[in-house]
Amino acid sequence: MYLADHTWPELGEALSDESVALVPLGSTEQHGPHLPLATDHLIAEALASAAAEETGAVRTPTVTVGVSPHHRQFPGTMWVDPPEFRDYVEGFTRNLAYHGIDRVVFVNAHGGNVQHLREVGRRLHEDETAYAIEWMWDESIPELVDDLFEHNGPHAGPKETAMITHIAPELVKTDRLEDARDDGLVHLDESDAVVHGARTYYDAVDNSANGAFGDPTDVTPEKAERLFEAASDQLVQLVEWLDARDRAELLPKDRVE
């Protein structure tokens, strides 16, 4: 159920204590020469919508701008600073709790959001407002991602190209796939990203001139469908697991005596 499509009387009847909400979060940032800036939030929204339809969980509006200053050199990229992002997400999650939702899944599709969403979840758990957990789609199916694509990449590579190929194929610039590969960084071990155990870069452009990593030419519609269905199935199972928990299981444990 998409929350914003309903009237308040309908929601008053539908929202109840111990209900689950799915909050899709992504970014608006460069994804190489072949994918739209909307890539991350489109993925998050599509997965959250599929899981909400399957489970009956509430889906909220999508957070479309995230923590993306490391892509700022590429035109069009938008970002917010971490403290403001954390406060914003925490604030509206507390709003959800006010209406009876006590468990939340942050359906995330942007790596730059991860640590901040986990911190928000920790705060909400600590004061017993809600049990909110961060879920990153590709981390739920790492073996499949590795099996499907020979040269993966953390950003604008085959896995994200596959997801947009499935969700919104008209937004993929198929004539730029080879450019993304040839002018980006296919082999991560060929960069100086880590030297003697130290991370040496701050921005994506330090490692990839066009912002793409991996080989997106390795994508087919069949692989794209398989990837999306596997990730959405993992999210459905997470929602069902969360819905089955007693509230007492989710609250912080007492101090050890």
Rank of each mutant, 00 (worst) to 15 (best):
residue 3 L to W: 03
residue 3 L to I: 15
residue 4 A to G: 10
residue 5 D to T: 13
residue 9 P to E: 14
residue 10 E to Q: 15
residue 12 G to M: 14
residue 17 D to A: 15
residue 19 S to A: 14
residue 20 V to L: 10
residue 22 L to P: 02
residue 24 P to S: 14
residue 26 G to N: 02
residue 26 G to P: 00
residue 26 G to A: 00
residue 27 S to E: 00
residue 35 L to N: 02
residue 36 P to V: 08
residue 37 L to H: 06
residue 40 D to R: 01
residue 44 A to P: 04
residue 46 A to K: 10
residue 48 A to F: 01
residue 49 S to D: 15
residue 50 A to T: 02
residue 51 A to E: 01
residue 53 E to Q: 10
residue 53 E to D: 12
residue 54 E to C: 03
residue 56 G to L: 02
residue 56 G to A: 04
residue 59 R to C: 13
residue 59 R to M: 12
residue 61 P to F: 13
residue 61 P to A: 03
residue 66 G to F: 02
residue 73 Q to F: 07
residue 75 P to T: 10
residue 79 W to V: 07
residue 82 P to A: 04
residue 83 P to S: 10
residue 85 F to T: 08
residue 86 R to H: 10
residue 87 D to P: 02
residue 92 F to Y: 13
residue 93 T to K: 01
residue 96 L to M: 02
residue 100 G to W: 08
residue 101 I to K: 01
residue 101 I to G: 00
residue 102 D to F: 09
residue 102 D to R: 11
residue 103 R to V: 09
residue 105 V to Y: 06
residue 108 N to P: 03
residue 109 A to V: 08
residue 115 Q to E: 14
residue 119 E to L: 14
residue 119 E to P: 05
residue 120 V to P: 03
residue 122 R to G: 05
residue 125 H to W: 15
residue 130 A to E: 03
residue 132 A to S: 09
residue 135 W to E: 07
residue 139 E to N: 05
residue 140 S to C: 11
residue 140 S to R: 13
residue 142 P to S: 13
residue 143 E to V: 11
residue 150 E to T: 14
residue 153 G to N: 14
residue 159 K to R: 13
residue 161 T to G: 08
residue 171 L to V: 08
residue 171 L to G: 08
residue 171 L to Y: 05
residue 171 L to D: 11
residue 173 K to H: 13
residue 175 D to S: 08
residue 179 D to N: 14
residue 182 D to N: 15
residue 182 D to Q: 15
residue 189 D to F: 12
residue 191 S to V: 11
residue 195 V to R: 13
residue 196 H to Y: 10
residue 196 H to C: 08
residue 198 A to K: 09
residue 202 Y to H: 08
residue 202 Y to C: 03
residue 205 V to W: 09
residue 208 S to E: 02
residue 210 N to F: 05
residue 212 A to L: 00
residue 216 P to D: 13
residue 224 A to P: 06
residue 225 E to A: 14
residue 226 R to C: 06
residue 227 L to V: 02
residue 229 E to H: 12
residue 230 A to W: 01
residue 235 L to Q: 00
residue 235 L to E: 03
residue 236 V to D: 05
residue 237 Q to T: 10
residue 245 R to G: 07
residue 247 R to C: 04
residue 251 L to C: 06
residue 252 P to D: 06
residue 255 R to L: 12
residue 257 E to H: 05
